[in-house]
Design a protein around this nucleic acid. Structure first.
Lengths: 105, 105
DNA sequence: CCGCAGTGCAACCATAGGGTTGCAATCAAA
DNA sequence: TTTGATTGCAACCCTATGGTTGCACTGCGG
């Protein structure tokens, strides 16, 4: 996964309502309607959020009869965290190198 | 750092131009004007982005004479990554527990 | 002292996006 | 088959925000 591909994931994680949804899904899988009963926004708003979460792979859906249940993809979080950590480490490394050069070591 | 405090950080990381700025700063500290010379956006746009990056602690500034130089705060990235990983692990744990209960183990 | 580079501030524009309501379509259950 | 729950789609509103331009302020250097 390239760094560029991470940007939409961060954008998805940059919204409070979506975190509420993820938190709610942390209590177990649920449909958009079920989530709408627990959160202070309309079902359609939640459906949109679920769409963007699914788009970036943070969530996946399964059709069960007439309802669509959503589930958190925990692996996506871990992968994102690892990439982020790697980026940070790389920056630290490069900046440290620059600092050494600047100090004439 | 609570999870809520992470949201603005992710929002900041959810923009492509800001990643360009961070990438440019990875080559060493720079001022808004210097960055404007390397990126295809105006200095003011960059200044705004630097303001939000600084707001969430991803970057810090130092006044040097008449210019203001910005530097990446790598530790902020690492901390964010660690929190994200912890959240992912917690969800995995809870969802696994739910699954066990559902399977009657 | 004067000019120019760098910054800060403000107004403004356009689009993206979070939210809503309304309605048609689908499908389980009575 | 009819009813009610659930989803999907579309139109719409409003605010946030990424971007621009223009201008005033500051401070180094000739």
């Amino acid at each position: 996964m390239t760094t560029e591909a991470l940007i939409p994931v961060f954008a998805a994680l940059g919204d409070e309502t979506r975190w509420s949804i993820l938190a709610a899904l942390g209590d177990g899988d649920a449909s958009a309607s079920a989530l709408a009963g627990r959160l202070p926004v309309s079902r359609q708003a939640i459906a949109k959020h679920l769409a963007v979460l699914q788009e970036v792979g943070l969530v996946e859906s399964v059709r069960v009869g007439r309802e669509v249940r959503f589930r958190i993809v925990g692996a996506r979080l871990s992968a994102t965290a690892r990439r982020l950590d790697a980026v940070g480490a790389e920056w630290d490394r490069r900046l440290a190198a620059i600092k050494e050069i600047a100090e004439g070591l």
